[in-house]
């Protein structure tokens, strides 16, 4: 395996894994406050799935020789990146709908081609991930659907969440092709199958009718159907904001990193204790 290929793969898989794990936090913020027992169970199961996805991906990345410990260390030191979308706050219940629908929707679009990626363990992890993702987007859209057919307050909340999550969702496909340093090489290695802009266009074309169907307004005055290309034209993405969030200047970036570091460091004693117990037991067995 060429070294550059291994490095790129490890980077891509570990960043993907980190995104799943950090991605638990914005939605985790609402498990305790979900509006019904059914919603509580759904959201908890969904966030738990994301933990599972993180695990599948860490475990695939570990087959290339980098330990999870090293990957986590890279995340906590800021060396490794994760999806910028999770540095936005979830302020109302409607955000849970918007995230499932838009963020998981965009993620699925990014991930489906990866099931055929050239590295076996990554591809197999992605098959599993994609299978589990299928309910995530639907439960999010269902929340939005219910809110949009509800009271004035519910509709207002849904539109507000949609306004806030629309643009960050489009950013999830990464910088424009002319500005994406890794895309060409990754396509050649077949660890990426479609360009950022191609996927973004596909997402807009699929999502706009879904929004309109439940009476949401797309927060983009430039949005217009383009008959010639058979897709929507849409407004300029604020790439300044994107790069700022990549740099760690997202609204809740500090909260996210602190939560992850705290979970890891403040519970180090648990991991040590279990190791100590295992060592004691092994010692006893040797003595017996």
């Amino acid at each position: 395996m060429p070294d550059a290929y291994r490095r790129t793969l490890t980077r891509q898989m570990s960043q993907h894994a980190h995104s799943e794990i950090v991605g638990m936090l914005p939605e985790g913020n609402w498990i305790g406050r979900a509006p019904s027992l059914r919603r509580k169970a759904i959201l908890l199961a969904k966030v738990q799935d994301e933990a599972g996805h993180g695990l599948y991906l860490y475990s695939a990345a570990e087959t290339l020789g980098t330990s999870r410990e090293e990957m986590i260390e890279a995340l906590h030191s800021g060396k490794a990146k994760y999806s910028t979308i999770f540095n936005y706050p979830t302020v109302t219940w409607a955000d849970i709908g918007a995230i499932g629908w838009l963020v998981d929707g965009a993620a699925i679009m990014n991930q489906v081609p990866l099931q055929r990626t050239s590295y076996g363990p990554y591809a197999r992890a992605m098959v599993r991930v994609c299978k589990e993702e299928s309910f995530h987007q639907r439960q999010g859209y269902e929340i939005m659907m219910h809110l949009c057919s509800g009271t004035h307050e519910q509709k207002r909340m849904a539109q507000d969440a949609f306004n806030r999550w629309w643009w960050p969702s489009l950013m999830m496909f990464g910088p424009p092709d002319e500005n994406s340093p890794n895309t060409a090489q990754s396509m050649r290695w077949r660890i990426k199958r479609e360009t950022n802009d191609e996927l973004r266009q596909k997402f807009v074309d699929i999502t706009v009718p879904q929004a309109e169907a439940i009476g949401l307004t797309i927060p983009d005055p430039a949005l217009a159907w383009n008959e010639a290309k058979g897709g929507y034209d849409f407004g300029e993405i604020d790439w300044e904001e994107f790069y700022a969030v990549v740099r760690g200047e997202g609204p809740v970036a500090k909260e996210r990193m602190k939560a992850r570091r705290d979970a890891w460091e403040q519970n180090a004693w648990v991991r040590e204790a279990a190791d100590a117990y295992a060592a004691k037991r092994a010692e006893k067995r040797r003595a017996a």
Partner: peptide, 8 residues
């Protein structure tokens, strides 16, 4: 550096 458990 806080440690992680063995891999299975």
């Amino acid at each position: 550096m806080p440690k992680d458990w063995p891999l299975w």
